[in-house]
Structures are given as structure tokens and as C-alpha cells.
């Protein structure tokens, strides 16, 4: 059962990721990326990370990607890529580099011994466990993260408000 689910989701994730980067229409790219996100959420569930899986859907699929679609539709950019290619060697070079990266990463992963998985603590991945760690061991980073988000909000407002329509 677990095997079937893992391989199914792995194939779905890779195929939808490939569709994401190869689709001509940006909206289809975003939709394929949505499928990748959902399959990753299922994989998180398999890894006993329930809370992460739900947050992945709420934040990534429910907010970040919707914002992407919003901007894609706002700009109504079709392919968005001009016909003239300024760098002829871009395509083969990019594919070669990505393959090299994958080869290097898998070589490193396969050559380093992982050993047997340690036993999971009770309540792994539940809201209580995540909250306990987040607010005990990571309190300062948590607060800094909120400041980072505030900076992001202010930055977006400053960047997109036009000069002639400054709020009174």
C-alpha cells in the first residue's frame, strides 16, 4: 500500500514538474505546479508529517500559487518569451547542467551511508509536537520570520503603488 502510494506520487511529482517547466502557457505551468504541490503533500503524509502536509496545501497551494495565477492573469502574458534568442547555447547548456546536477546529487546521496532509520518519537508530526518545538527551541527565529514577512508586505506595496496615485 505504502509502496504503491509512494511510487505513484513520485511519478506524478516528476511528470508534473517536467510539465511545469516545459509548458508554453504560464497558466498550465502553474496548474502543473499545483499538482506537484499536492503530490508532495501526500508524500509528507507518508513521512508522518501531517501538519506540514496541511500547511503545505494552505500556504503554498492556497495562497502563494493563487497569487502567481493572479499575476499571470493580470499581465495576461501568453508565452512571454520573445521570438529572438539572444543566447543560442542556452537550451543545450541548461539541460546539460541540470543533468550534471542530478548526477552529482545522486552520486553523493548513494555514496553516503544513511544507516537504519531511528525510531520515531511519539506524536511525530502532530500540531502539538510542531508547536512545542517551534515555540521552545525556535522562538527567536519564529519572531524574526514575522519581521521578514512584514518587510515583504511593505516591499510589495512600495514596489507596486504608482507614483501618481500615492494614497492621501
Amino acid at each position: 500500500m505504502e509502496q504503491v502510494l509512494f511510487w505513484l506520487m513520485a511519478v506524478v511529482a516528476v511528470v508534473s514538474a517536467l510539465t511545469t517547466i516545459s509548458s508554453r502557457r504560464p497558466v498550465h505551468s502553474a496548474l502543473a505546479f499545483l499538482v506537484t504541490l499536492l503530490s508532495l503533500a501526500v508524500l509528507f503524509l507518508l513521512l508522518s508529517a501531517q501538519f506540514v502536509a496541511v500547511i503545505q496545501i494552505i500556504i503554498y497551494a492556497g495562497a502563494i500559487l493563487v497569487l502567481f495565477l493572479f499575476v499571470i492573469m493580470l499581465l495576461n502574458a501568453q508565452s512571454g518569451e520573445g521570438p529572438q534568442i539572444k543566447l543560442p547555447s542556452q537550451r543545450p547548456l541548461a539541460i546539460a547542467l541540470a543533468l550534471l546536477l542530478f548526477g552529482g546529487l545522486s552520486y553523493l546521496l548513494l555514496s553516503s551511508p544513511l544507516g537504519a532509520a531511528r525510531p520515531l518519537p511519539a506524536g511525530m508530526g502532530t500540531v502539538q509536537a510542531v508547536g512545542g518545538i517551534l515555540f521552545n527551541h525556535f522562538l527567536l527565529p519564529f519572531e524574526v520570520a514575522s519581521v521578514l514577512l512584514l518587510v515583504g508586505v511593505i516591499g510589495a506595496v512600495v514596489l507596486t503603488v504608482k507614483e501618481d496615485e500615492q494614497p492621501k
Binding site: 517547466i21 505551468s29 502567481f68 499575476v71 499571470i72 518569451e81 542556452q90 547542467l97 542530478f102 546529487l105
Partner: peptide
């Protein structure tokens, strides 16, 4: 690793800023 490489390929290949971003 496979997904990361696909993302890297997308960021290098595509010229549409939005798709580079999704990658």
C-alpha cells in the same frame, strides 16, 4: 534531488520571468 534538478533546469531554460520564478 530529481525535483531540484528539474527546477534548476527550468530556471536556466525558460525566459518567462514568471516560469523562472515557479521553477
Amino acid at each position: 534531488a530529481a525535483l531540484f534538478s528539474i527546477g534548476a533546469a527550468g530556471a536556466l531554460l525558460r525566459r518567462n520571468a514568471l516560469i523562472v520564478f515557479i521553477s
